[in-house]
Amino acid sequence: MSIYGRTNPPVMDKRSTFLVAAVLVAALLVCGCTQTGTTTAEPPQTLRIATTTSLYDTGLLDSLVPGFEKEHNAVVQIVSAGTGKAIEYGQRGDVDILMVHDRAREDVFLADGYGLNRRVIAYNYFVIVGPESDPAGIAGMQPEEAFQTIYALGTNGTDGVAFISRGDNSGTHSKEKAIWKSAGYNYTEDIQNSGAWYIEAGKGMGDTLVMTNEKQAYTLSDIGTFLAYKGDLDLVALVDSGAILLNVYSVMEINPAMHAGVNTSIAQDWINYMVSDDVQQQIEVFGVAEYGQPLFFCASGKAETIGVPAGECATPLA
């Protein structure tokens, strides 16, 4: 034993513990790699999709993914975000596919050259939901009239009248702004910061519905997410008709000319998969058994209802 009183064993112990840990992690890594390597002759391609929350939260995409993965030897990775964020990912080239529902912003995105080959895949309607007691009395009104009523009662402090906004630049948020505009208000001047009645959640549709339920307030929701969450909520759809409530879902690929890393061939496969008769049929029946009504309607052959060019409606890519 030296004068420094060096006692090797504890040091060795620590070192060996660390080694064991490192080896374990390495082994796990190797296991994982070989496992994925042996399942198929060729490694699967990864398809990255940025989607609006409604297509994900309802479970629709999860139900469609396995069929595609099998057919194309692919792994589909879905990032669920509001339309605003999804478009941002698209612009930065972080995904191969966008699935969103905001025609106006999609048009800008396409015109700027970020996106290609847009196809409309589904549609449904927005609904204004609120507590069954309906303190503002908007049941059955036209959407603009309902918003005017909520605004009038909210700003004068009527008890129990509050509106929860997505507040996250999502497609639903865009639609909400469009309704305020159509109802005669300037969104940033008249609505935002006009009082405690108007609450911006800054969250996805599911979270916003949960918050609306907790506060027993009003909100705008796509019908799909509302039906999927309805069982856990004490909220009812109070306004469900009016031309402005149409909600159109599109798919498009990211322009590979803008970002070299984008996988365009698998992206086009996905678009063609989404517009295929089989998937269009699956969209139409999705959720019917569970919720008693469809969450989405397929776009195939409905160009006139949706008000888009026929070529964009569920037509396969050339």
Partner: peptide, 12 residues
Amino acid sequence: GGNTKTSAFWTS
């Protein structure tokens, strides 16, 4: 990470 779930362990 993006909180993604896929059919493959290492892409999730």
